[in-house]
Computed example of a mutant assay.
Amino acid sequence: MTPVSDSNMSAGDFPSDQKPLWTAIILAGQRPEGDPMAAYCNVQYKALIPINGQTMLERVARALIASPYIGRMVVMAQSPEDLKAGLSPDLAEHDGFAFVESNDGIATSIHDIIGSDIAPWPVLVTTADNALLTGEILDRFFQAHSGQDVAVGVVERQTMLAAYPDARRTWLKFRGGAYSGANLFALHNAAAKPAVAFWSAVEKDRKKGWKIFAHFGPWLLLRALSRTIGFKDAMAQAGARMSLRAEPIILPIAEAAIDVDKPDDLELVTEILERRERQ
């Protein structure tokens, strides 16, 4: 299928057999003062940390490029040319691969390009440190997407602990379960733009769920803090405040919620990849 580049159209505007492929945005930037994991691994950029023979960015890019759901990829970073130079030539020169310079705000940078010719709808956002991303994870995510304006991939705590009982993640706790993010965000159409604009205002609190829900009023905050509301209902109510449909997509694969934020993560991801590649 040829990717559709009309920035005014979304997947919902097409017959089911003619839906456009997704644009995948890979966030590969880092803090202006440098990244602790990059320093720990003695590389200039976190995205170029090598794991078992491939950089994290390359692993994510190869998973995306192999997916039948993805038609275009955009790497967003403060120094995109440096990251391009760190990729294998077959990836760096791929026709469906673009490199875009970001500013200091992740959400603002995304907001500036989604729906444009650079990143036509629908858009999937992920991160370069999502090194365990696989075709199976992407399949599960896209197959569960049913037209939500905004969808967020998560893993429930029991799924994680059953596979990795010692894994330490950040958990958002709601009635019926606790969830950790999978670094997969579906932005389906222009209705998602207010959510991205909102994210730019709360970006610094992204790992503190209660602070995010506080922006939607005291009642939703109280229900989130008291765990008298489920995650799906909480997202639906937050989305309704922005006149959009928002839902979590709960993935049954523990590895979907394991990224590389600290040395322990890097050790675990390395072990998992070594085990996979021995099979």
Rank of each mutant, 00 (worst) to 15 (best):
residue 1 M to G: 13
residue 2 T to K: 15
residue 2 T to N: 12
residue 3 P to A: 11
residue 3 P to W: 07
residue 5 S to N: 14
residue 6 D to V: 06
residue 9 M to T: 14
residue 10 S to I: 04
residue 14 F to N: 06
residue 18 Q to F: 13
residue 18 Q to I: 05
residue 21 L to R: 14
residue 21 L to S: 14
residue 24 A to M: 07
residue 25 I to K: 09
residue 26 I to L: 12
residue 27 L to I: 15
residue 29 G to C: 02
residue 29 G to Y: 08
residue 33 E to G: 03
residue 36 P to E: 06
residue 36 P to V: 02
residue 37 M to P: 01
residue 38 A to C: 01
residue 38 A to T: 02
residue 40 Y to T: 04
residue 42 N to W: 00
residue 43 V to C: 02
residue 44 Q to E: 14
residue 48 L to R: 01
residue 48 L to H: 03
residue 50 P to M: 05
residue 51 I to Y: 08
residue 53 G to D: 01
residue 53 G to A: 05
residue 56 M to I: 02
residue 56 M to G: 04
residue 57 L to K: 05
residue 58 E to K: 04
residue 62 R to T: 14
residue 64 L to A: 10
residue 65 I to F: 12
residue 66 A to G: 09
residue 66 A to C: 10
residue 66 A to F: 08
residue 67 S to Y: 00
residue 72 R to W: 14
residue 74 V to H: 07
residue 75 V to T: 13
residue 78 Q to W: 09
residue 85 A to T: 01
residue 89 P to I: 10
residue 90 D to F: 01
residue 95 D to R: 15
residue 99 F to S: 03
residue 99 F to L: 11
residue 103 N to R: 12
residue 103 N to H: 10
residue 104 D to G: 03
residue 106 I to L: 13
residue 107 A to N: 13
residue 108 T to Y: 01
residue 113 I to L: 09
residue 114 I to E: 11
residue 115 G to F: 04
residue 117 D to N: 13
residue 118 I to D: 09
residue 124 L to D: 05
residue 126 T to P: 06
residue 128 A to P: 01
residue 135 G to T: 15
residue 137 I to D: 12
residue 138 L to T: 12
residue 140 R to P: 00
residue 141 F to W: 08
residue 144 A to E: 14
residue 146 S to L: 14
residue 146 S to P: 00
residue 147 G to F: 12
residue 147 G to S: 06
residue 148 Q to N: 07
residue 150 V to T: 13
residue 150 V to S: 10
residue 151 A to L: 09
residue 156 E to F: 02
residue 157 R to E: 15
residue 158 Q to M: 12
residue 159 T to N: 07
residue 162 A to I: 09
residue 163 A to L: 06
residue 164 Y to P: 04
residue 167 A to D: 06
residue 169 R to A: 03
residue 172 L to W: 15
residue 175 R to L: 14
residue 180 S to T: 15
residue 187 L to I: 06
residue 192 A to F: 11
residue 193 K to P: 03
residue 195 A to N: 09
residue 200 S to I: 01
residue 202 V to G: 01
residue 205 D to E: 14
residue 209 G to V: 11
residue 214 A to D: 15
residue 214 A to C: 09
residue 216 F to C: 11
residue 216 F to I: 10
residue 216 F to E: 04
residue 217 G to S: 07
residue 218 P to L: 08
residue 218 P to R: 08
residue 219 W to F: 13
residue 220 L to P: 09
residue 222 L to A: 15
residue 227 R to Y: 03
residue 229 I to F: 05
residue 230 G to W: 02
residue 230 G to Y: 00
residue 233 D to H: 02
residue 234 A to G: 09
residue 237 Q to M: 14
residue 237 Q to T: 12
residue 237 Q to A: 13
residue 239 G to E: 02
residue 240 A to M: 10
residue 243 S to P: 00
residue 246 A to C: 15
residue 248 P to Q: 09
residue 250 I to D: 07
residue 254 A to Y: 08
residue 257 A to Q: 06
residue 258 I to M: 10
residue 261 D to A: 08
residue 263 P to C: 01
residue 263 P to Y: 05
residue 264 D to E: 13
residue 265 D to P: 05
residue 265 D to T: 03
residue 265 D to K: 04
residue 269 V to K: 05
residue 269 V to D: 00
residue 269 V to N: 04
residue 273 L to H: 08
residue 274 E to P: 00
residue 275 R to A: 15
residue 276 R to F: 07
residue 276 R to G: 00
residue 277 E to P: 00
residue 278 R to E: 11
